[in-house]
């Protein structure tokens, strides 16, 4: 790791102030991706601003049909939350399968979506549930938040404060794990609400996205069989030593079918 200057802040205002003053500052949430990246000297921020001391970024609340999860809430807290388990069990399940227990104790929702790793799990849920990302400046819809590989709609001094997840009538997340890293080779989040189906896909392409063709097939026929006829364009799929584009495209359908089956 290159050296840097560490600051722990206790308010959003202080965090914004610190990053504006830093030459090349970075927020750190749980640090479970950022620290390994820095250890390999692939990132070299001048300042690391730790959001871990900002109490208002933590916590889970349910209000009507919306589950609000603070950005600095850990995966372990989401997985163990009876509120989340009751309102959106698929979301609790998803959180409970990110990384491993020790990683889940540090890693956070906000950190995960701000980093936007193409193989991260949370983006699939944000898109699949049609969640809203709330920052210190504005609210961003899930569809508009993820803009590209490791890229989001966030500005440099913008801090995610919470994510608002609407409840669904039924939802499920199916992940096909990379056997080495345990990230998603393909992860599909399917949610059905009032007859409308949304599908969030992660791992398959450069950036998590809505499975529009899948949604089209599933709207009005919410069965696994409906997925069979969907054509998944192979050109856009990631291809690496773990999975070819063709295999990923195939897995998108298999995982979608299994998610649909799990919804019933």
């Amino acid at each position: 790791m290159y050296n840097f200057s560490y600051q722990k802040v206790s308010s959003i205002a202080d965090a914004v102030d610190a990053i504006q003053k830093a030459e090349d500052g970075k927020f750190v949430a749980g640090g479970q991706t950022m620290l390994p990246t820095m250890k390999h000297r692939l990132a070299s921020p001048s300042d690391v601003i730790d959001l871990g001391g900002i109490d208002e970024l933590k916590g889970i609340s349910v209000d009507g049909d919306t589950v609000t999860i603070g950005a600095m809430t850990t995966h372990a807290e989401v997985a163990a939350s009876s509120d989340v388990q009751g309102a959106i069990p698929a979301l609790a399940n998803l959180a409970g399968n990110i990384g491993d227990p020790a990683v889940r104790n540090r890693g956070t929702l906000g950190g995960s979506i701000a980093n936007n790793d193409p193989a991260a799990d949370y983006p699939a849920a944000v898109i699949g549930l049609g969640a809203t990302v709330k920052t210190n400046k504005r609210e961003i819809s899930g569809d508009e938040f993820f803009t590209g590989m490791f890229e989001t709609a966030l500005e440099d001094d913008e801090v995610i404060t919470a994510v608002l997840f609407p409840k669904a009538d039924a939802s499920a997340y199916m992940k096909f794990e990379n056997p080495a890293s345990r990230y998603a080779i393909v992860g599909v989040f399917v949610a059905s609400s009032g007859g409308a189906v949304k599908v969030g896909v992660t791992g398959a392409t450069a950036c998590a996205h809505r499975g529009m063709r899948l949604e089209e097939a599933l709207n009005g026929n919410f069965t696994a069989d409906a997925v069979d006829g969907v054509e998944i364009p192979i050109e856009k799929m990631n291809s690496d030593i773990h999975a070819s584009a063709e295999y990923r495209a195939h897995l998108v359908k298999v995982m979608t079918k299994r998610a649909v089956e799990a919804c019933s």
Binding site: N178, P179, A180, S181, I241, H242
Partner: peptide, 27 residues
């Protein structure tokens, strides 16, 4: 699970546990 892979330039592309799959308890 395990397989060591070099690309045609001789770069080792399975150089960490992120890419080289070790057997774990659940395998």
């Amino acid at each position: 699970l395990e397989g060591c892979q070099y690309d045609s330039d001789g770069q080792l592309i399975t150089a960490s546990y992120m890419d080289y799959a070790m057997p774990r308890a659940d395998n």
